[in-house]
Structures are given as structure tokens and as C-alpha cells.
């Protein structure tokens, strides 16, 4: 179950403050890294919602992210639609695509679910790759950024655009936390913990799963639409299955099922990748080793491990004070 603990609030605020301070002090390239970390964080939050809390390990989140990016890019470049409209459309179309995937795959579990999501993600990838109107494997260039001149702002200014991306990431966290705290969020966790029981108490499981997928897809699409504006270019590479694999790695690295962990994971990932890539071309060997160590060490991840230790101390303190364990909101949760 999701609980907006003090530790979560403090960590999010600290990262937010650091991101804003860094944006104002760093050079052009640093701002690009901030934007990259912000979009990756949005995508990772979106995946953690359904993977960490809903127990659905999706390997099509890269594709949903790409659907968002392509919807924004296609509408603005090919049809010259107002960027704000295209931005909204990107979120809606991604959510609809995710809803369809979630509805169709709701019956499958475990490795079959992972494979089914992979199949749908790859289908989207192939369709885009083979579509000449969308530029095929060359992609689409000349994607405009949102025109915010009526507000006296300019998103071609990299400070303003970086702050916009950071704000979007913060809002995504707030939205995801709000959903997970609601009755719907508890229902979703209920499905992960015991799907058969949720069915027995009368829940239409597939609908809950599909709606959760749609909400997660809307966030992923938001991230995609921002990523398309950052590089002003989209290519099918955004949707390749290894992107989904990478996002999953980021979520695990930060701490799955913590919602804050994915943000920590995304920030550390982007900056670590930048540092290591500038020293050696073999970044993947580091990333792979770090992932393997994270899993073998218990799979809690960077932030997850800290939260686990803090939470354990809190429970001990409560137990010492004589509060029954059922009142502490803890349940036996496993991320199988």
C-alpha cells in the first residue's frame, strides 16, 4: 500500500530543489542532462505505478513513451496542429494505447504477461518503423516546442524548458501518488497481493488493470511528448524494446514499489551514464553489473533499501510503544 511518508516527501523536495539549483548554475549540457533525467523519471514513475504497485511488469513502456512522442511530433510537424493541442493529444493517445494493451493482456500472468506486453510494444515499433509517412527509420525532424510566448516565456530558452520538464516530473509524481492513495490505488495493490480474492469480492479485475495501464500510459505519453520537444526529433529507436528494458532497470535500481525510488534511479542513472560514458565506451558493462548486484543484494534498490531500513526502525518503535502491527498499515507485500 502507498503511504506518502515523511521520508518520501523530504527526498522528493530535496531532488526538486537540487534540480532547480543545478539548472540555474550549470551550462548548456548540464541542462540537457536535467531534461533527460526529468523525462526518464516521468517514464520510470509511470512504470513503477503498474509494476511496483500493480505487479504488472510491462516491457512496452518504451513503446508507450514513443507513442506519446510520435503523436506530438506527427501532429505538429505533419499537420501543423497547435502544439498545446498536440501535447494533450499525445497524452490521450498514449493512454488509449496503454488501455488497449492492459485490457488485452489482463488475463496473462508472470512471464506470459511480460512477453505479451513485449509483443504489443514491438508491434507499435514495427508499425512506426515501416510507416513512410512518419519518416520510417529516419524519424521526424523539426518538432517545435510549446509556444508559451503569451505567458512571456520562451521554451527555446534551455533554462525555462529544463524547469518545465522538472515541473512536469514533479506533477507526475504528485498525480501518481494521488492515484495510489485513492481507493483505486488500494484496489490495484489488492490485485497484486491476491488477484483471486479481489475477483471473489466482486471486482472486475481486467477493468482495473486496464485503467491502471491507461493512467500509467498517460504519464508515459507526457514524458514522450517532452522528450520529443527536447531533441526536436523523434525516431523509432525511442520505441525499441531495450528502452523498456532500460526503464525497468532504472526502476529496479532506484527501488521498485516506492515511487520515489524511480526518480532517484533516473537521476543517478542519467548522471552516472554521462560520467562513465565520458571515461570509457563500455557503459553497458557497468550498468549490467550494477543491475545484477542490485538484484542479488535483495532487489530493494538504492532508495528502496533506505526506506526499508527507516520503515523497519519506525515499526520497531511503534511495537515498543505497544501499537498493534495491524494499525501501522503494514502488510505482507512481495514483488514476485
Amino acid at each position: 500500500m502507498f503511504r506518502q511518508s515523511l521520508l518520501k516527501t523530504l527526498t522528493v523536495l530535496a531532488i526538486l530543489a537540487a534540480a532547480i539549483a543545478y539548472t540555474f548554475t550549470t551550462g548548456y549540457f548540464g541542462k540537457e542532462l536535467v531534461i533527460e533525467a526529468a523525462t526518464l523519471a516521468i517514464l520510470a514513475i509511470s512504470l513503477d505505478m503498474i509494476a511496483g504497485y500493480g505487479g504488472m511488469i510491462s516491457l512496452c513502456h518504451g513503446a508507450i513513451f514513443g507513442v506519446g512522442a510520435y503523436t506530438y511530433a506527427g501532429l505538429t510537424v505533419l499537420f501543423e496542429v497547435n502544439p498545446f493541442l498536440a501535447f494533450a493529444a499525445a497524452i490521450v493517445v498514449s493512454a488509449a494505447f496503454a488501455f488497449a494493451v492492459g485490457a488485452v493482456t489482463a488475463r496473462t500472468h508472470g512471464i506470459f504477461f511480460i512477453m505479451a506486453t513485449l509483443a504489443f510494444g514491438q508491434m507499435a515499433y514495427v508499425l512506426v518503423f515501416e510507416n513512410k509517412a512518419l519518416g520510417g527509420d529516419d524519424g521526424l525532424a523539426g518538432v517545435p516546442r510549446l509556444d508559451v510566448s503569451p505567458l512571456g516565456l520562451d521554451f527555446n530558452n534551455s533554462v525555462q524548458f529544463a524547469l518545465f520538464a522538472v515541473a512536469a516530473a514533479a506533477l507526475s509524481y504528485a498525480a501518481a501518488a494521488w492515484v495510489l492513495r485513492s481507493g483505486f490505488g488500494r484496489t490495484l495493490v489488492g490485485i497484486r497481493v491476491n488477484e483471486a480474492r479481489m475477483k471473489a469480492v466482486g471486482l472486475t479485475v481486467w477493468r482495473t488493470k486496464a485503467i491502471a495501464f491507461a493512467i500509467s500510459g498517460a504519464l508515459a505519453g507526457l514524458g514522450g511528448a517532452i522528450a520529443a520537444q527536447q531533441t526536436m526529433f523523434v525516431s523509432p529507436e525511442l520505441m525499441a524494446w531495450m528502452v523498456s528494458g532500460t526503464v525497468l532497470m532504472v526502476v529496479i535500481f532506484g527501488g521498485i514499489g516506492t515511487l520515489v525510488g524511480p526518480i532517484v534511479g533516473a537521476v543517478v542513472w542519467v548522471f552516472l551514464k554521462h560520467e562513465i560514458s565520458s571515461a570509457t565506451p563500455y557503459w553497458h558493462i557497468v550498468a549490467g553489473t550494477v543491475l545484477i548486484i542490485t538484484i542479488v543484494a535483495g532487489g530493494r534498490g538504492l532508495y528502496g533499501q533506505i526506506e526499508y531500513m527507516v520503515e523497519r526502525r519506525r515499526l520497531k518503535r511503534l511495537a515498543a510503544a505497544g501499537v498493534p502491527s495491524t494499525a501501522t498499515g503494514r502488510e505482507d507485500e512481495t514483488h514476485a
Binding site: I57, G110, I111, I114, G245, L248, M249, I252, Y282, W283, H284, I285, A287, G288, T289, V290, L291, I292, I295, V296, G299, H335, A336
Partner: peptide, 18 residues
């Protein structure tokens, strides 16, 4: 569980490729 296995072997792919 399948998720941890998928992830560990995904990490192995990265290591092997490099």
C-alpha cells in the same frame, strides 16, 4: 520469481554485449 530472473539476465545481456 520471473521478474528478478528477467532482470538479472537482462543485466547479463548488457555485460556480454560489452
Amino acid at each position: 520469481g520471473p521478474m528478478n530472473q528477467v532482470l538479472v539476465t537482462l543485466g547479463l545481456i548488457f555485460v556480454f554485449v560489452d
